[in-house]
């Protein structure tokens, strides 16, 4: 196990114009003895939209959670060239302190399956919380930014409502605005349509589509909606058993999967639809 902790062959930072926005280098995630992700290598380019699909338990949500919520047991994660999971201490990579992690994660936004809006704040309050408390913006400036974003997701009319009075689709759109208010370089979408009624899924996917096409935001999206993933992704990664089993442009992966497990998964999903 010693070589797992030898980080000398990982670069201190990634440089050059072609450097990926997000880079997983040989990343391992374990919960106790259970290995969820094993030696993951994945690069996401700036402005790229990557969808992550796969059966439950394949580790696809863990990919996002490692960026935002959890620590890793092996390898290094870089965001915008800088190490996130580790930090440079006198020319050596050492595990990140909570302070370093928090600073690194300020560049990342995340939206959740169950929205997780703050119930005691209005839609506007939710979107102003991060900019005011974390970025130190004035209330006035944060309000303007929040209102612009609520306008963009079509929720400006509901800015003074509390989440309890909003539908699932409306809550998720506010949650997207809240994440964007931090001006993240990367947006993580964790099954953001899975808890929604079918008739309101479109209002959320419409917003995501706008982020991709109009704003060229770097997005990593875990989803069960194959049609939507095929429609807007630059690349689709199929996860199986803690590894990327197959990846490629959606046109290739969905219409001409090479691996047997991919074929099985896609046909199972198709017959369920």
């Amino acid at each position: 196990m010693k070589d797992l902790h030898d980080l000398s062959h990982y670069p201190l930072k990634l440089e050059g114009p072609d450097r990926p926005m997000v880079s997983f280098r040989n990343v391992t995630k374990r919960y106790g003895d259970l290995v969820v992700l094993d030696g993951l290598n994945l690069d996401v380019a700036e402005g790229e939209m990557v969808s992550i699909i796969g059966p439950s338990g394949s580790g696809k949500t863990t990919v996002l959670r490692m960026l935002m919520l959890e620590t890793i047991q092996g390898g290094v994660i870089y965001v915008d060239g800088q190490p996130l999971s580790h930090m440079d201490r006198g020319g050596m990579l050492v595990p990140a302190t909570p302070r370093h992690l928090r600073a690194g994660r300020e560049q990342i936004g995340m939206c959740f399956q169950h929205f997780n809006l703050f119930p005691h704040m209005t839609a506007l309050g939710n979107c102003m919380e991060g900019p005011v408390q974390v970025l130190g913006m004035s209330k006035q400036a944060a309000r303007e930014r929040a209102e612009d974003l609520l306008e963009m997701v079509g929720m400006i009319d509901k800015r003074d409502e509390h989440p309890a009075r909003l539908s699932g689709g409306q809550q998720q759109r506010v949650a997207i605005a809240r994440a964007l208010a931090m001006r993240p370089k990367v947006l993580l979408l964790d099954e953001v349509t899975s808890a929604l009624d079918p008739e309101v899924i479109g209002e959320v996917t419409g917003v995501i589509k706008k982020l991709v096409e109009k704003y060229r935001l770097t997005i990593m999206m875990v989803t069960h909606q194959m049609g939507f993933a095929a429609d807007i992704s630059d690349r689709v990664c199929f996860f199986y058993d803690g590894r990327i089993e197959e990846q490629g442009a959606p046109a290739d992966l969905f219409s001409n999967p090479q691996k047997e497990r991919t074929q099985q998964f896609l046909s199972a999903v198709k017959s369920a639809d």
């Binding site: 928090r102 994660r105 936004g109 974390v134 931090m182």
Partner: peptide, 23 residues
């Protein structure tokens, strides 16, 4: 308080103090 609220605080990079005091 649901676990998702803590995760939302982490996702917004709120400090521990703000997480407790405000959320």
């Amino acid at each position: 308080v649901p676990k998702g609220q803590w995760e939302a605080c982490t996702a917004l990079s709120l400090s521990t103090r703000d997480t407790y005091a405000r959320i």
